[in-house]
Amino acid sequence: MKIVIINYGAGNIQSIQFALKRLGVEAILTDSETEIRNADKVIFPGVGEASSAMQKLKASGLDKVIPTLKQPVLGICLGMQLLCNSSEEGNTKGLGVFDVDVIRFSNEVKVPQIGWNQIQNLKSELFQNIAENEFMYLVHSYYVPLCEGAIATSDYGIQYTSALQKGNFYGLQFHPEKSSTAGEQILKNFLEL
């Protein structure tokens, strides 16, 4: 099985590669369209600021490639947010796979949300062997509101979408690679899709 992690210069991809390695899988870091199209599974990571990450995607032409992928694609954190229509962060237009807009948490809660929160209303094969209310590690200031494609929700002052799916595209707001054994189980489930 060939797993690629899209390398477009945004974020901590080393940790995802290490997490997969702990599961016995050697993932390839690449920005090559051919490599990405030929992969069995694609992971689309991202940490940092939305508009600059989007610029990097455009510079490499990957903004045209990613939405047309046919194999299972897993967007993590900013990767997931970039798969949405837009982000309030830097007024960024996204890749438009998920038909929803990313907005900022209100100042009634501390921003960024940093730490372990629970995931609920789990609705995907991605969450096989994951209990309702399992803890996941999150670090983010912007979020996806509740929406039709939600496959997990969390509570931070308000209920919001902490994971979503549309066809072969999956998005996780939390970091499975940093969420202990439960996070590793989700990565394992993705590899087995």
Partner: peptide, 11 residues
């Protein structure tokens, strides 16, 4: 840092 990241699954 590299060795720690390779080994542990928390931030």
């Amino acid at each position: 840092v590299l060795k720690v990241a390779e080994t542990i699954n928390i931030p």
